[in-house]
Simulated assay, not measured.
Amino acid sequence: MVDVIRGFALMALFLVHMMESYELYWAAPREDAIIHGIFLLFMGKSFSLLALCFGFGFFALMRGAAARGVDFSGRFIWRLIVLAAIGSLHALIYRGDIIQLLALLGLMLPLFHRVKSNQVIVAIAAAFLLQPVLWVQFAAIFLGGGPGEAAGAALAGGDPAMPIYLHGNFGAVLRENLVDGQIAKWAFLLHSGRILQIAGLYLVGMVLGRIDFFGRLSANGRARRIALVAAVVAALATHFAVAAMSHAAVPQFLSDDGYRLLSVIVGGWFDLAVTAIWVLLLCELWLSRAAVLLIPLASVGRATLSLYILQSLIFVPLFYPFGLGVYDDWDSVTRLWVGLCGIAAQLVVARLWFARFRYGPIEWAWRSLTYLRTDIPLRTTQSRAG
């Protein structure tokens, strides 16, 4: 089930990247019905689903190690250091890499693993998801200026790296992504509240593992459906709240910076509500006859790291001017069809790969570096022989 969610999240994130032309869309954004629909359904939700699965994956690793009588905390930290290094290399090609973020924020998980009370963990997760830092910045603006103005200005400001991406050669893009591009990315993650959002979702995923949520789907159907209704209501309420804030009544008592911050906060809650909807809908489908349609996503979910990096290696040179430069040639319909064909290809490749191999290629390398071993079997036949 978790592999299915992870695979769905990766394919959704891929569609968002295709609509964004791997960030070049934001140089001159022209939203239409297709782009609006993809962004509404998946932007901010796909990486949230991955964060939720990351927290669950941490729990599964720790539980498995505990069953063997091993403390995995130190090894997990080393595992994240390796992952951060992989993400840093990937970020040279695509500045928007999220592997770095997931790895570095994951360093907090061993600390919270020692907290035994699920209620305490949920309370801390809720505090993160309420975005206290953004509320402090909003209050500073509302009360007459202060540090919150810097956050509002950062959300409204342009991207200093975009001229390089639009006109630079491959070497210039690499240099930009090495330092300045990363600074801009991390500033956006901080001012948009995504860092706290991912931290909160990590903890939620860990608690879902502790209560065996995905292992007891048949037993918690009623509670799950109630949660689905609540998530739909929350999504509708926050969506219309963001829409209402664009009317003239709000700017009368809020500055532009304050309006932007408030929109980010409420918009983040909308993303969380839709994330919950996707999880609960996938669970319902998994228990129905439609489960057969979800099974191919499990193979994609097992190779998330490899496919995520492969997507960038193919499509960044395709979109960027140092390669084919089709970012301003393809309209949204073309990008959508290419994206859907790319999803179909990844489903087929993943299925064929796991017919012969136990791990994705980069997953295998990551596992080998985690344990500092080279004899970890990759082929399925090796596993059977062992």
Rank of each mutant, 00 (worst) to 15 (best):
I34R: 05
H90T: 12
D159I: 01
G181W: 04
V173L: 13
G181M: 07
E31R: 09
N177G: 06
I38D: 02
L107I: 14
A85I: 15
A187S: 13
Q137T: 00
G193F: 00
Y202H: 09
L13W: 03
L143P: 00
G106D: 06
L13E: 06
G200N: 04
L83G: 03
C283G: 04
L166T: 15
G215M: 09
V2Y: 02
I309W: 05
A27L: 12
S306W: 08
I211L: 12
L92C: 12
G152D: 03
W78R: 15
E284D: 15
M18K: 02
L134Y: 02
N220P: 02
F357A: 10
F112T: 02
E149P: 01
P377R: 08
D375Q: 01
I198W: 00
P163T: 11
L178W: 13
L15P: 01
I314S: 08
L111P: 02
L190I: 12
V133W: 11
G267A: 11
G268S: 15
M162W: 00
Y259F: 00
L310G: 09
I35F: 01
A230L: 10
S73K: 12
G146L: 06
V300Y: 05
A249V: 14
Y94M: 09
V292M: 05
G209L: 09
I295S: 10
F253N: 04
A67T: 09
F58P: 04
T238V: 06
L318Y: 13
A249C: 09
G44Q: 12
D3M: 00
M108Q: 10
V122A: 07
L189K: 03
A355F: 04
T380A: 13
Y320P: 04
M1H: 04
L143Q: 05
G360A: 13
P251R: 04
L310P: 04
W353H: 15
F142H: 15
A151R: 01
I362Y: 11
L134F: 00
A298N: 08
R210P: 06
F128S: 04
V349G: 07
A28G: 08
N169G: 15
V133H: 11
G7M: 02
R6A: 01
F188N: 10
